[in-house]
């Protein structure tokens, strides 16, 4: 079953993701323009795009554990997922900037409001990843440095989860759920060896 899926996936080109990726954005904006998102469309679009960014971050982080746990190989789609994640984050940010706060007090908000600081930091940290998501950069940096740089997606995902946790009113499960999923996906990367090393180094 997994083998057959892997065969199908091997035949699927990664660029298909780039073709499909803008469709949800266009759909969300179409709904917003035609009243399909209720009477506060700017806020809803902003929220929907934020959720998509989180889902995509989770999808990117899930590629390795899925391969290890289920043998399903999605590795060739990971770069496309990452690039698309960046564009959703950008769309989320621009919607906030242009339609929601409308360029008012932007700098004060970034500095003063924790959830905005955290969200903006995640976006800034993602810039070098987006800019180096091409073969040319991979060659220039070399695989070791490139991989080290792209591990930045771990703190970015944590910041994304924190951003959502910080912005809701009252005690709500939804952001906690996302934070837990991201925590599990990151914990999956701590294999026993690094844990053992960590224990040795803390004892020393």
């Amino acid at each position: 079953m997994v083998d057959r899926l892997n065969t199908v996936l091997r035949r699927m080109p990664a660029w298909a993701i780039y073709i499909l990726a803008p469709l949800p954005v266009l759909w969300i904006y179409y709904l917003g323009l035609t009243g399909g998102l209720g009477i506060d469309p700017a806020k809803r679009i902003e929220h929907e795009l934020g959720l998509w960014s989180l889902w995509l971050l989770i999808a990117g982080l899930a590629v390795t554990p899925i391969r290890r746990w289920f043998g399903l190989n999605l590795l060739k789609f990971r770069r496309a997922i990452g690039v698309v994640t960046f564009f959703y984050l950008l769309a989320h940010l621009l919607t906030w900037l242009v339609l929601d706060v409308q360029f008012q007090n932007v700098w004060a908000d970034i500095v003063k409001r924790w959830y905005i600081t955290v969200g903006m930091l995640a976006f800034v940290l993602m810039l070098p990843l987006a800019l180096t998501s091409n073969n040319c950069s991979l060659r220039r940096l070399g695989p070791v440095r490139w991989r080290r740089l792209h591990k930045m997606v771990y703190p970015i995902a944590l910041l994304g989860a924190l951003h959502f946790l910080l912005l809701v009113k009252g005690f709500q499960w939804e952001p906690i759920l996302y934070a837990l999923v991201i925590a599990v996906l990151l914990a999956a990367r701590l294999n026993l060896q690094t844990l053992r090393l960590f224990r040795v180094s803390t004892r020393a």
Partner: peptide, 17 residues
């Protein structure tokens, strides 16, 4: 503490209000 109260979005004005 988490957002400005200086302005507001008057609902019903559409996406570009």
């Amino acid at each position: 503490p988490r957002w400005s109260q200086a302005t507001e979005r008057r609902l019903g004005g559409g996406l570009f209000a």
